[in-house]
Structures are given as C-alpha cells and as structure tokens.
Design a binder for these strands. Structure first.
Lengths: 173, 173
DNA sequence: GGTAGGTGCTTCGAATCCGAAGCACATTGC
DNA sequence: GCAATGTGCTTCGGATTCGAAGCACCTACC
C-alpha cells in the first residue's frame, strides 16, 4: 500500500488546527454577543456590514455577496429573504441583467450595523487582538492575505460544476 | 456609557476578516472533499481524528470532546449518536463519574480516519500551505497559538451560565 | 445524614444550512 | 426572429446545528 500519507509536520498541522479552532471560537463568541445585543445573526451582520461598510453604493449583487460570505446561493436567498422581511435590505432587479437581483441596505439596516458594531469590535479586540502584539497582528494579516487570494482563485467555490462543461475562457468564445 | 469604542484600523480589520474568510473557505473545501471521498462529515472526522490521533487511549469524555471541537453539547450528542450507529465509536460510562460518558473509537473508526486522512492533508496543503513560505507557516502558528490559548481561557465556552432556578420547589422527587 | 447547588448528558423544538432541481433571462449562432 | 446553451436566483427536501429545559449524579456544606 502506498502509505506514508502524513506529510504534514507539527508546525503545519498546528497552524491548520489553530486556524480552524481560533476562527471557530471567535465566530462563536461574536455570534453569541450579536445574539444578545441585537436581533440579527452573524451571517446577517456580515451581509449588512458588507453592504453598509464595504460597498460605496450600499448595494451589491447576490452572487457577489455569496462569494464574499462563502455561503451557498440558496443560503443567501434565505438570508436575504429574512433581511428583507425585517426591512433591513431591499431587493430589486439589476440594471443590466434582468435576472440579476441587487440587494440594497436600508437606513434601518445601517442603523442596525451601527448599533451592533461597537460590541462586535469589542469582542474581536478582547478575544483575538488583545493577546497579540502589533507585529503579530501585522504578520497575521500578511500571512492570511495571500492564502485568501489563493483560495479565492483556486476552487470555484460557488460555481459548482453545473455540468461537466468547460468554463475556460478559451478559443470557443 | 458613550465610551467611544476605538475602531479597528485597516490591518486589524483585515486580519480579522481574512481569518474568518480563510477558515471558512478552507473548512468548506475540506468538507466537500470529505463528502466526496468518505461517508463522514467534517465534524465527524474531527471527532474521530481527535480520538484516534490525539488521544493515546482512543477514548475521551463527551465534555472534553465538545470543548475541543467548539460545538455545543447537544450537537455532540447528536454526532456521537450517528457515529455510534455507524459503529465507528462506542459509548460507555466513565469509570469515575456515573453520569459521565466515555466515547471510544473502534477499529472501523480508525480505518475511516486512515482512509480519509490523505485527501484531507492534500486539501490543506493545496489550499492553505501551498502559497505560503515556510517562515509564514511558522508565523501563522506562532501567532494563532497564543490567540487560541487566550480564547480557551477567557470565555467559559461550554459552561453556559445555567441561570434560572428550578420551577418546582420541593417534593419534586 | 440531609439538603442545596453544580456538573454531565440527553431530549426537544426551532432555525439554519446545503446541494440538487427548476425556472427565468441572457447570449450566441443560424 | 428562433433555437441552443450558459448564467442568476429561487424552491425544495433533508441534514445539522443550537439553546433551553430536563433528568441523573456528584460535591459541598450544615
């Protein structure tokens, strides 16, 4: 048998496990804090924050949102429905594509973000940043950034193989 | 009251977001790979790996498992039930505590871990480690390790405040 | 010894998530 | 203009998750 499968040394394994665990614990803590102080979940906060803080126009297309928040399309549809019902966002048709849906944050949505942000930041600071030096925070960012770029490019995370077809922008186009 | 919460600067925010996103994407990829090659989910693999690789005896108490995998007690009960039904673990009473439950991995469980590990490792390597230099991997570990320790200590992650007394005073036997 | 409080695990109901399938629109080639 | 193919979002069914409540046992204190 072609054994010898564990080619990860202690540091690599440690980095992987620590990454998963730290992210999990952090997310768990933020989720709980958000649940206590606000009426929205972590995912919903992420979506609202992306719309309210990241986007200059306050609106984005569904697919872009899904890609940014990792979740599946169907999950995003579900969450967008909840947010729309809560009147924190509105859904409208995209200007270009008739089938595209543009999600826009409302004033109420911005208010929720503003109200939730302080506590959110506090958790991040207390749990993640507090035990780290400035240099370490910079290192963390410097290391994770290329990993993020690599991951975003490598697997078509949301473009699941609809079929066996090619998506290569090659000749036949 | 109106304590102006110092906002996070670009690096801090970037580190936080990158951490969440990288962990999410990585977990998603591993989850999918695991789903295709094996019959167990990511959580189940984590549990089995913890029992089979981390524990010298191959068994651990429920609470320790829950703390290590972040999830709630009820979630662990559910997963342990599934694993037991699949005959990958067994559940028995702890020696000391009559109310404690000890989970032990079976040979079939170890086999599943061995079979799943190579692909698992490959995903980690391709997605997380490949774009990083050796130094960066070491930095990642060196930075995340204190954060993990801090998080483990700071919040009683599983010791939820059991507020709320009993409803029936006496004669509840 | 007896009672009060704490801990360990499970059950329960509800919420959330995902992948597959389906529908509607867009784009291309004829 | 019309058919064929690709893309965007939603619906659907099932699986997984959590928190709260509940039961059983252990520990501390009188």
């Amino acid at each position: 048998m072609a054994t010898a499968p564990p080619p990860l040394d202690a540091v690599e394994l440690g980095a992987y496990f620590a990454l998963i665990e730290v992210a999990g614990l952090l997310r768990h803590a933020v989720e709980q804090q958000l649940r206590e102080e606000t009426d929205i979940s972590y995912v919903q906060f992420q979506l609202l924050a992306r719309l309210g803080l990241d986007s200059p126009t306050g609106s984005e297309r569904m697919t872009d949102l899904a890609d940014g928040v990792v979740y599946s399309r169907s999950g995003l549809t579900y969450q967008a429905g909840l947010l729309e019902k809560a009147e924190l966002v509105t859904r409208g048709q995209s200007a270009d594509d008739e089938r595209g849906v543009t999600v826009s944050i409302t004033d109420a949505g911005r208010a929720v973000v503003s109200r939730a942000l302080p506590g959110h930041v506090e958790v991040i600071r207390d749990l993640l940043l507090q035990p780290l030096s400035r240099t370490q925070v910079e290192q963390l960012y410097a290391v994770l950034e290329p990993a993020r770029e690599h991951m975003r490019a490598a697997p078509p995370r949301s473009a699941r193989a609809r079929r066996g077809g090619r998506s290569s922008p090659a000749a036949a186009s």
